[in-house]
Each structure stands twice: as C-alpha cells, then as structure tokens.
Design a protein around this nucleic acid. Structure first.
Lengths: 333, 333
DNA sequence: AGCGGTACCGTGAGCGCTCACGAGAGCGGT
DNA sequence: ACCGCTCTCGTGAGCGCTCACGGTACCGCT
C-alpha cells in the first residue's frame, strides 16, 4: 500500500543514540530543544542525526504525547468555487486550533466517497464536509467518529450538521423581482436525488407569499454548462419568463452565458439571481445579484462543531449551527 | 495544544477486550475483519466496542503497520483559483497512491509559512507546494524531509522542483500580438521579492526577439484589484500601449475590468493576454486569451516527485519535472 | 484409542518514541 | 569533611496497537 516494502529498516532514535554514543533520551532532548543537555553533546547528536538521515516517526511521537488533532474534510469537488470557499473557511478555523486538515475530493462519486470514508476512519479524529451517502452507510463507515454534515438534513442524532437558512434571503430576492415588475419567475433547480432541493422549497414559499405561480422549474447540473443547458430548456418550455432564480451561483453564471448567447440582455430582457454569494459572481458580466451567505463561515462552523463534539462540550446554540443569507444586489437583477 | 487535557482516559482496545471478556487480539480481529473468529464473539465484541465508544488510535495502528503516507501541501492562498487547481491536481495524484494530503494555507504570510513548516515536519512524510521562505530556512525547518517546490528556482540540491516552461508560450503570445499589428506592448508583472519574475524575463526575451521595446512594465498585486490598479498605472505612464501581457490570469482579469471601466473595448482598444489558463478565464467577458499550462498536472507532478524522493527512486527525466505552455486563443486578443 | 485437521482464541514481543524518575559529577558554602 | 544544589545524562516503563506464534477444543477418520 505504501513505501515500506522490504526496504532497509528505518533509522530510529536508538540508531542515532548508538552512533552518537549517548542514550535515546539525550537524542530526544537534542531534537526537541529541551534543556538538560550540554551544548557540545547536542550539536554532536544533531550532526549524527542529520548524517544518518534520521526523521522521527510521527506515529510513535503522536502515540505518547497525544496532542495532535486532525479532521478529514470531504468535499465533492474542490474546483467548484463554492467548495473551495468552504474549504478555506475550514482550514482557517482549523489553523486557529492548530488542527490538521486532511482533504479528500470525492469527485462527486459515491464510490469514491465510500472509499474515502473507509480509509478516513483510521486517519482522523473527526469528519467534516459534504457527504451524499445514506445516513446508515455513513454511520457504518465512520463507526463512532464525530461527523459534521454541511447543508444537509439528517434524521438520526448520530450526526451534527451546519444548516443554511435561506428563507429570508430568497424571500427578499423574490420580493425584489416582483417590485421590479416581474410576474413570471422561473427557477433552475439542482438535480439531486430526484426530490426537489430545500432551496426550491424556499423558492416555492416565497413565490406563493407573493401570490405568484412557482411551477416554472428546470433542473440543472451543478456546473456552468449545466446552467446554460437548463436555461435553454426553461425558456423553451416557459417563453414568458422574465426572471430566474437559480440553485446556486455557478448555475446562474451558466444562465448568464446562455442569455447572452441567445441575444438577451441581462437584466433588461432577463433578470438573474443566484445563490451563494461567490466572489466569482463579481467577475462576470454583468456582476451577479445573489442570495449571499458566508461560505467560509460554513466551513469554519463545521470544524468548530467538530471541536465541540470531540471535547464533549455542551450542545451549541442553534444559531451557531446555521448561517443566514441576505440578498446582495449587483447588476443582474 | 489540543483536546486531551485532563479528560477521562481514552478507551483502549484492552478496555473493550475486558468488557467483552476476550483478549485484545480477538478485539483486533473483530474490528479489522480478519478471520479466525466466531460470528457470535465478533458481534459481541463489535457491540461492546460501540457501547464503550471505542475508536482505535491511528498512532498506535500506524506505528505497527507502517503503511500510510501523507504529504503536506503548502499553498499561499487556496482561494486563488490557480492554487485551487494545483491543489486539485495534487489531491488526485495522491488519491491514486492512496496517500493522504494535509493542506495548509499560509495566507501568503512568511510567519505562517514558518509556523506551518515547523509543525509539518512532525506530521507528514513529505512537503509539496509553494514556499517563499529562503532556502536555508526551509532546510532548517524541514530537517531532511523531502521537499518539492513548485515554480521556484533553487540553488541547493536539497530540494526538488517542478518547473514551468513558459518560453514558447509567451513567445507565441507576443508573436500573435505583433501579427495583429501591435507595436507597443506592456506587461503587468507580479511584485515579488523586488526582482523581476521569470515570466517577465520570458516577456523580455520574446519582445526583443520581435524587435520590440519591453520597458513598459507595471507591478501588480496578485489579485483582481491589483490588476485593475496596475493597468491604470501602466496606461497612465505609457499611454500609447495597445496590448498587455500579464503575470497571470487573475491580474489579467483585473486588467479587463479596468479597461472596461475606463471605456476601452477589449480587444479593439486594448488586447489582453494572461498566463495560466484558468477555467475562470472562460467565464469573464470577453473570454481571456492566455498562455495556458496544465495547472492540475503541476500539482500531480509535485506529488509524483515526492513519491520518487520517498522511495529513493532514480532521478526523473527533465520533462517529468516541467510543464509546458501554449497560447490559448480566446477573445481578449 | 489414536491421529491429523480445522476453527477459534490467547500470549509475548515489539513498533519508536517520550515521561518520570534516579544517578553521577562538579562546585561552592559552612 | 559535609551538605546543597545545579547541570548533565541514563534507565525503566508505558503509549495502544498488530504480528507471529502457541494453545485448546472439537470434529471426523482410520
């Protein structure tokens, strides 16, 4: 599985000790900058250690002084800017705790996720991230490991999760559109697990609160291309649409491109509002209006919750587990 | 430093063994799905393990069967799409080897990089990434650990590095511009370590090969805003400029924005060519012409080289350590 | 009864390191 | 000469786990 093979035995602390004519403990002292050691001996030990190519075993060290924590961060696709930002937030929070973060990119494949969880269980102290496997399977694979899910509903008490509260944000978005005179608003939903997404439910609620019909929906892959295709389909099926709300910014950007390609001016001919508030949205033309949330906080909260689970700290306040959203007006709507 | 404190002793394999009325070995067999164990005993052991909340120590396990490798990936800013892609490449290559990747984001601060390297030395088997500290300091902090630098020149034999060969790509870019009639071409260089970058040297060489003057240069921070500011400055100092080549795509995108803001049409009034070939470049308006390289391969090669260093494999061919570039024509030039 | 074989399970050792302790040397003070 | 103390270094134990053994029970067969 790895490097060892039948190669030469690794250089241990005892080898160094013997070569330098001292005891293990003295070598340890030299390497860890502890006191209780003469300067000349220290230098001699350090030299021989270097000469022998000695490198302490992190396992042996970790075994005795149990002071390092590492979390596994599992995400479907690091190249998706949304997950990148989540990861960045997690890394930052981990750094504050001097935790180590082992990152796994599953490529959005269930099989990879399974394999990752399998191997992760024996490598980290907690798991954090976007998991898509069924709960019972996750439970089985992680065997008691603390698990923090991000943006996912779950039934069992077995897991924690960080939630996104998009209700008010989506509401504000739809209200904004109606105030601009839009009556026929469509949505590009994400195609996950056949059932409609939570974001779609927020859309439904907001639409009916405004007395509008929310049935103009198309499904999109979570990619720019997916957004392009889906907008084409949506406009084909419901030609009267003057505005779209999308599952996320990536899809919205696809919609922007498709709109341009079909000769529509945004927002004049078609208003577009995304979801996530990615930085990327400021770079496209026109800059994307979006229901923004603090993505980095999403990752940060996840590791903080993992920390609580690990130390057995009390249950957190609900708002420590949810991030709120707000409408961020730019130029696409 | 971490969770332990004076908390209750952790549950060990012996605790489980005692509670289940069996030996350690039997517990081990149950947990690792080895044979030589009765089904009923196995179930009983598994149950008590779950009940006690037992989780095997990765250190103890790693110590005895030394079969897990992990690399530390150090990058200045995960949110910079370039580094994101490099990281993705590294993750993928690591997955192929079933290695673990511990990611550290230094935020481009020397102090963080130092702290990271310090802690990394006792946590991983090799270090890979973008390091900006002086060589001797890196050497001191990593103490014999295999280190693979990306896109950085180095003097000592102590390190390996993955190089970018931008010469032909930049040449093609400049040639493309001259063939389009441009005579006055500027560059937005990155402001690192006061000396001009290697990319700037390629620019110099390509310009003089075309018989042009390469002195119109401004320095930019490695961000969109940095690119905006720098283009303003460049156009202020050299008003005759009709085309710019930039240190990277991020800066180029800033240039695009600044051009639009100042009422210039790209590429009609100003041609822009970036460097890196980020996906992001396809999303901006107009799509960015760029000197493209395989960023993900950059990361992948780095971990592959780390693997060679770890196994003491022979020296690689030179082209296994460099990635080439090519001009990718889109619409900004 | 005796034998080999199979299915289970336990025992010692050891992975490489650090921690708590103790030991010796040297030195000054009384 | 004695005690104290400081500085330096070594020794046993143990972190939690797996591996290579060795042992017991029970089966069927000659």
């Amino acid at each position: 599985m790895a490097s060892s093979g039948t190669g030469p035995r690794r250089v241990t602390i005892d080898d160094v000790a013997q070569a330098a004519g001292v005891s293990r403990q003295t070598v340890s002292r030299a390497l860890n900058d502890k006191g209780e050691i003469g300067v000349s001996t220290k230098q001699r030990v350090l030299d021989t250690a270097l000469a022998l190519g000695y490198r302490p075993s992190r396992f042996a060290r970790g075994l005795v002084r149990q002071d390092t924590v590492s979390v596994g961060l599992v995400i479907p696709d690091l190249l998706n800017p949304f997950f990148t930002e989540v990861a960045a937030g997690a890394l930052e929070a981990a750094r504050d705790r001097s935790w180590h973060v082992v990152v796994y990119d599953t490529g959005d494949r269930a099989e990879e996720e399974r394999a990752t969880l399998e191997v992760i269980a024996s490598q980290v102290d907690a798991v954090v991230g976007y998991l898509s496997l069924p709960e019972d399977e996750i439970d089985k694979l992680t065997r008691g490991l603390p698990v923090v899910l991000i943006d996912r509903e779950h039934r069992t008490q077995r897991f924690s999760s960080i939630r996104i509260d998009g209700e008010s944000g989506v509401h504000a978005a739809i209200r904004h559109l109606t105030e601009a005179g839009h009556r026929h608003i469509g949505m590009l939903d994400h195609a996950e697990r056949s059932e409609p997404s939570i974001r779609h439910r927020w859309f439904d609620a907001a639409m009916s609160a405004c007395g509008l019909d929310a049935s103009s929906v198309a499904r999109a892959d979570q990619s720019v291309e997916g957004g392009e295709d889906a907008l084409q389909e949506l406009l084909g099926r419901y030609p009267g649409i003057t505005a779209v709300f999308t599952f996320n910014d990536i899809i919205a950007i696809g919609a922007l491109r498709a709109a341009r390609r079909t000769g529509r001016q945004v927002p004049r001919d078609l208003a577009v509002i995304g979801f996530d508030g990615l930085r990327l949205g400021t770079l496209v033309e026109p800059p994307l209006t979006t229901v923004a949330l603090d993505t980095r906080r999403l990752g940060a909260l996840a590791v903080e919750q993992a920390a609580r689970l690990l130390t057995g700290g009390g249950p957190p306040h609900a708002d420590e587990l949810t991030v709120r959203t707000e409408l961020r007006l730019r130029e696409s709507a």
